[in-house]
Design a binder for these strands. Structure first.
Lengths: 189, 189
DNA sequence: CCTAGACAAACGAACGTTCGTTTGTTACGC
DNA sequence: GCGTAACAAACGAACGTTCGTTTGTCTAGG
């Protein structure tokens, strides 16, 4: 067992926050997961709240970067939506602890960090909104469709994945992406 | 200020759990909300966990009853789906603390209560699944549509409402129900 | 030898809960 | 109608435990 660094601590915190919640996690719990004492965590990190900030920020950044990549493709609205959906599912399943913590524990950040994270989330939603608007303008999506609300609905479906999807089950990742894509495209057209 | 009964305590716990989470709520916090000491709560309830059980069970029952009412209408699949959507939104907004606690804190119940609540939730989902299946059989909904997954998607949209919808905003309850209904029907046809 | 990481002990505060007691209300025999 | 017993609600202090955090010491690798 080699010694731990700050990244190990943040990763461990992500796992614990995702399963037990921020307030349901003690520093001693977290230390035990990592094989050290709770007090030893303070060699790496300023405190518990700082860990939450680090984990949530990591989660937000994953989504942010994935959306940027998906938008960079710059293709037709339908394909762009497929890319956004695939990217979101990818982040959610590849970085499940951070993604879940980002989605469920953001409310426990204090005001300044929370509003910063919310700004990132707004920019992220904007990627979905503008893709939908583009589709409406090009006439490939329904005209009587509020892009703001539709973006929320799509993200609601995607975020909820985390609570029911089992990577070990029969439903492959590619299949769930395809199924959601078809559902969403049908809803938009 | 008259004295409190058990219902008042459970209602207060629902509000506090919904905003601060189960582990983020102390008995003293809860007492302060209600204008009594934390210790005085034990005149009404056995303990904190018992409060969580009571709140979550109330939330689950609201949804259960609403679905039963909606199914009792026994109309065409599309109208039945509209009824289920309206019923779900109604419960979510009329009993927001209990609904939110039911949706987000169910994981902190201990095993026996959690599995009982999950059974109720499964029966509730079944109402959506069977309505979709019925629509597919009658040829009014798409054939290439997995009713299990579609039910999850629809419920994902509905449950997420709680995190963004503001009753005080421009979007009325009737309008959001109608918008979700149109989105869902488009997705299913 | 130096230093960063881990330990072990301890801090004060807050936790859920229990206890004995006080207060306010309700019901009933006289 | 009045006094009183019974009861429920709330208090306030204290229990033992756990919390986040601080401090000082030790130890192993570079």
């Amino acid at each position: 067992m080699s010694r731990l660094n700050r990244e190990d601590i943040v990763a461990g915190a992500g796992r614990r926050f995702a399963t037990h919640g921020y307030h349901g996690t003690s520093m001693r719990d977290l230390g035990e997961d990592l094989g050290i004492l709770g007090s030893s965590l303070y060699s790496h990190v300023g405190g518990k709240q700082e860990l939450l900030v680090a984990v949530v920020e990591r989660g937000a950044t994953f989504f942010e970067n994935a959306a940027a990549d998906a938008l960079a493709a710059d293709c037709a609205p339908e394909e762009q939506m497929r890319g956004l959906i695939a990217a979101h599912v990818g982040v959610l399943l590849d970085h499940r602890p951070e993604a879940r913590t980002y989605l469920t524990e953001v409310g426990f950040l204090d005001d300044s960090e929370r509003s910063r994270v919310n700004q990132i989330r707004d920019r992220y939603e904007e990627a979905f909104r503008s893709t939908i608007s583009e589709g409406i303008d090009q006439g490939v999506f329904r005209k009587d469709c509020d892009s703001r609300l539709a973006a929320i609905y799509i993200l609601s479906i995607l975020n909820a994945l985390d609570r029911w999807y089992d990577e070990k089950g029969r439903l492959t990742r590619a299949k769930v992406i395809e199924d959601i894509y078809r559902f969403v495209i049908a809803a938009l057209t």
